[in-house]
Write a protein that binds this DNA or RNA. Structure first.
Length: 571
DNA sequence: GCCGTTTTCGGCCCGACTGTTTTCAGTCG
């Protein structure tokens, strides 16, 4: 059993309860679900150490949910959940993945039209059976069809952040085997693409049968597609496939290069090899039949006259040409990061007190953490008003007195209202160390209006950072309509830093826009948008995204010291 | 169903937006 599965079931229960108008109970389940999905320990371990009592230590888990988790660990099922499912037997999670569809609509469509699956839903919409229903209409029907199309577009792709902890676990497991000399993940995962299809793993071992046996019998494996001595392929319980290849030590680097891709990058590198009278394949670099490189990736690139290229850059976007001239930039690295400015504390409904967040940040080696609680407009996120902000800042002052080489910065994530106004008084904003502003409402504005709205907000001298600039949710929601070039020019002119939001479903700015921002001379900041302390480690996703956008250390302001950082902001 | 520097019971989940309706239900953040 994985935390992920459990979290998914609790989330599903929450959605079923919404169907039943059980709103408070639903919120409780959703909270528990979120909490569990971001735990850094396995729920099973927690249970085996301390039983249901230990489970209750998990935020959002109380008596009742603890018992349900126990039931799940012991029997693999939760009776309560099974009952909810049998009452309304539909693919709820799939159907509500369609933008605009929620549990209530799903229930009506089941009751009136017996719609249980996406394909039945599509059929019903195409047959114009939905529009005549009370509460539905032409537009809803159309939105459903568009939503289904959107979902089809990303079928089979998983979010990088979703699979990250699972891949790490598998890799750790492989590396811990005595029979494994080394192991690494390749493919789009290694390139840190925002979504990944299947996961490609490589290992060097003199006893492949034992390695493959281990790989195929991991607890999370749902199905074994094939198991051989050089390649095995499995479907994980979470729904994605993993391939493991065991290669010889001599060709490990070449295999890593080959399986990391991208395909386009590989075509380009092979072409370079040919131009030098060499041959590059997954076994090595060959001069005639003699292998001249292959053991390490560095050797492989060197043998064909190229500088080593960070995996995140391997998309054939000009990186091969740069490598030929030894001009690959030193892109930003996790080690460069000195702090996180996008963190929500328990003041705005986040999970953890400022003190706890600061301690985690310190342990991560940071020199500062910025607390950016929501402001008042976002009622559901317990946004703070001017007085509450001031009160919170007293707490920060007090904590700061205790620290020597570490500082907690006072920030907020304010809301940009429909005409570019900020939802909290300038007087309050000016007292903070920095202000993040972002859009959390009216996301379907027209392009011109939306662009104007954002630029108006940027003109506010208190606004320092523009958070999740395009508002997209990967695989779920498109970007808002904005004129990015205009926004970039305004950011430069009004000295506003653009965020690279590292949360799993956002990764916003995306790679391409990071390049454009860089070109426009706009500074960026990587923020995790953590609502609980464990999410501070999403920084690595944000850094990976920045690397995909070829950002250097100097492009990212939270690689600087506190003084350097604050210098980027208005007074 | 969870939680407690307002409480072990009674709060918590508000407001905008959309697409439906002629006053509102469902969805989203």
């Amino acid at each position: 059993m994985s935390n992920k599965e459990l979290s998914r079931i609790l989330f599903s229960i929450a959605k079923y309860l919404e169907m039943e108008e059980e709103s408070f109970r639903s919120v409780a389940y959703r909270k528990a679900s979120r909490s569990i999905s971001s735990l850094d320990r396995s729920v099973e371990d927690i249970y085996s150490e301390g039983g249901p009592e230990a489970l209750k230590e998990i935020p959002g888990v109380g008596e009742s949910i603890a018992l349900k988790i126990e039931e799940y660990i012991k029997t693999g099922k939760i009776k309560y959940y099974e009952e909810l499912k049998s009452k309304t037997p539909i693919d709820l999670s799939e159907i509500i993945a369609i933008e605009g569809m929620g549990p209530k609509k799903a229930k009506i469509l089941y009751q009136k039209l017996k719609v249980k699956t996406i394909s039945q839903l599509e059929k019903a919409a195409k047959g114009h059976l939905i529009a005549p229903l009370r509460g539905f209409g032409e537009k809803t029907e159309l939105n459903i069809l568009q939503g289904i199309e959107f979902l089809k577009g990303q079928k089979g792709r998983f979010l990088l952040g979703e699979v990250y902890p699972i891949v790490e676990d598998v890799l750790r497991g492989l590396r811990s085997l005595r029979e494994v000399e080394k192991a690494e993940v390749a493919g789009s995962f290694r390139r840190s693409k925002e979504t990944v299809g299947d996961i490609d793993l490589l290992a060097v071992s003199s006893e492949p049968e034992k390695v493959m046996e281990y790989f195929a019998s991991q607890p999370d494996v749902a199905k074994v597609w094939g198991k051989g001595l050089t390649k095995s392929s499995v479907r994980m319980a979470e729904g994605f496939d993993m391939d493991l290849r065991v290669v010889s030590r001599k060709s490990y680097g070449a295999a890593l290069q080959y399986f990391t891709g991208s395909k386009e990058h590989n075509v380009a590198t092979r072409r370079i090899a040919i131009s030098k009278g060499l041959k590059l394949n997954e076994y090595g670099v060959f001069k005639g039949t003699r292998r001249i490189a292959g053991e390490t990736e560095e050797d492989v690139y060197k043998a064909i006259g190229l500088q080593w290229i960070p995996p995140e850059m391997r998309e054939n976007q000009g990186e091969v040409e740069l490598a030929l001239e030894n001009k690959i930039p030193r892109v930003v690295d996790c080690k460069d990061m000195r702090g996180d400015l996008h963190v929500h504390s328990n003041w705005d409904g986040g999970n953890d007190p400022i003190e706890v967040l600061a301690e985690v940040a310190k342990k991560m080696g940071y020199e500062y953490i910025g607390i950016s609680d929501h402001t008042q407009y976002l009622k559901i996120e317990h946004g703070l008003d001017e007085a509450q902000l001031a009160k919170r800042d007293l707490e920060i002052d007090k904590l700061n007195e205790e620290y020597k080489e570490f500082r907690i910065l006072k920030g907020c994530e304010a809301n940009i209202l429909n005409h570019g106004e900020i939802d909290i008084k300038d007087e309050a904003l000016s007292k903070l160390d920095y202000v993040i502003a972002g859009i959390h409402s009216s996301m379907k504005m027209g392009k011109a209006e939306m662009t104007e709205r954002i630029i108006t907000a940027m003109k506010n001298p208190n606004v320092d950072i523009f958070s999740h600039p395009t508002g997209r949710l990967i695989n779920t929601r498109d970007e808002y309509q904005i004129d990015l070039e205009k926004i970039l020019r305004a950011a430069k002119e009004f000295n506003v830093v653009l965020e690279i939001n590292a949360s799993i479903e956002r990764l916003d700015l995306k790679d391409e826009y990071i390049k454009r921002a860089k070109k426009a001379g706009v500074k960026m900041v990587i923020g995790t948008d953590a609502h609980i302390k464990e999410e501070l480690n999403l920084m690595r996703l944000g850094v990976a995204q920045a690397r995909r956008g070829w950002a250097k250390k100097k492009d990212i302001i939270n690689t600087g010291s506190v003084e350097e950082l604050l210098n980027n902001f208005h007074d």
